[in-house]
């Protein structure tokens, strides 16, 4: 298990270095950072001095090393637009996006997995067919449409839930959470639902497909032959064998959710990183964009690594050490 962990972490570190190279290239070579930072009256000497101070005259490798060293310490420089530390800006916005994505992910699993099992087990029933049809609609609707429809139904017509913003938040250290206030929770419902609609149907369809496959296997039949009750066969023996792809999908999709959150955050004016990024793009705020790129990549890589480690935990066959011990006798 240890060798496996080290291998996975080395892979992750290598990928991050490559991403850092990309982010650094954007930062350094897409437009001149000096031009963006000084005002129009600055003299040639001012510019040269700033260039020297920023270390832009150093060699490529030195600059890249410095960029990585700073990035590891969470230093991505100063935002061109609001002259604030980029990490502080992102730090302010990150909790909002994280809570949104977290709740959307939990929703997609808690709703998607049971629906998938039910539609697979009762595949001939009318309800299963209806769910299956509904899932096609869910997959095909773009999330901004879902968002707007939700706003129309629950905010405008019924007036039950707020249509925008995060409600009241509570600060726990640097983390501002909306989960502890009722207005914060109410504000979270619609964006999370809108973000997770696609996920729910994706998880449901995946679980259904995997379950149909698993229900045909010998060990499911053998479990029934041992007298294991149908419910236990479906929800314990079969479902556990379906979770592998669900874990992968969920892990990969959290990355996608953060990306999709961009749209949802725009629709619901949710003060998260997505909204920050959209604003950064509008003002060509390159440090913010570079930091966002690094952060999202980091989340992707971290998730992939966690997914692989979880694999080894769920499926004993993937653990390096047991595979070696598996030179069975007999």
């Amino acid at each position: 298990m240890l060798a496996f962990l080290i291998k996975r972490f080395a892979n992750a570190a290598f990928v991050m270095l490559a991403v850092a190279l990309l982010a650094f290239t954007i930062f350094r070579f897409f437009g001149d950072p000096v031009e963006m930072m000084v005002n129009e009256q600055a003299t040639q000497e001012d510019r040269a001095e700033l260039r020297e101070r920023l270390g832009l005259n150093d060699g490529f490798v030195t600059q890249y090393t410095r960029f990585v060293t700073n990035a590891v310490q969470g230093d991505f420089g100063i935002s061109y637009r609001n002259q604030q530390d980029v990490m502080v800006l992102i730090g302010e916005r990150f909790p909002a996006t994280f809570e949104l994505v977290l709740v959307a992910t939990i929703l997609s699993l808690v709703i998607g997995i049971p629906l998938g099992v039910i539609t697979a087990v009762h595949r001939e029933s009318r309800m299963a067919n209806a769910l299956q049809l509904g899932s096609i609609v869910g997959v095909s609707l773009p999330s901004f449409v879902v968002g707007i429809m939700l706003i129309l139904a629950f905010s405008v017509s019924l007036g039950w839930l707020p249509a925008f913003g995060r409600g009241e938040t509570v600060d726990i250290g640097w983390w501002s959470t909306g989960l502890l206030t009722s207005s914060g929770r109410a504000a979270l419902v619609l964006p999370a639902l809108s973000l997770s609609t696609f996920q729910i149907t994706l998880v449901m369809r995946l679980v259904r497909a995997e379950m149909l496959e698993t229900l045909r296997t010998d060990y499911v039949k053998f479990a029934r032959a041992r007298g294991v009750p149908a419910g236990r066969v479906h929800w314990v023996h079969a479902l556990r064998n379906c979770l592998m792809p669900v874990i992968t999908l969920t892990g990969m999709q959290i990355g996608n959710l953060i990306a999709f959150a961009l749209v949802t955050e725009t629709v619901f004016q949710w003060p998260g990183m997505g909204l920050l990024f959209i604003q950064a793009v509008t003002f060509v705020d390159i440090p913010v964009m570079a930091a966002y790129l690094m952060l999202v990549s980091f989340i992707f890589v971290a998730l992939n690594t966690i997914v692989d480690v979880t694999y080894a935990w769920v499926d004993p066959r993937l653990r390096d050490d047991t595979a070696k011990a598996g030179g069975a006798n007999g």
Partner: peptide
């Protein structure tokens, strides 16, 4: 009845056991 009064043995022992338990 299954398991208690009638036991079963299937063809392929490689696939009869649930790999995750």
């Amino acid at each position: 009845v299954r398991g208690r009064r009638i036991g079963a043995i299937f063809q392929d022992p490689l696939t009869s056991l649930n790999p995750l338990f």
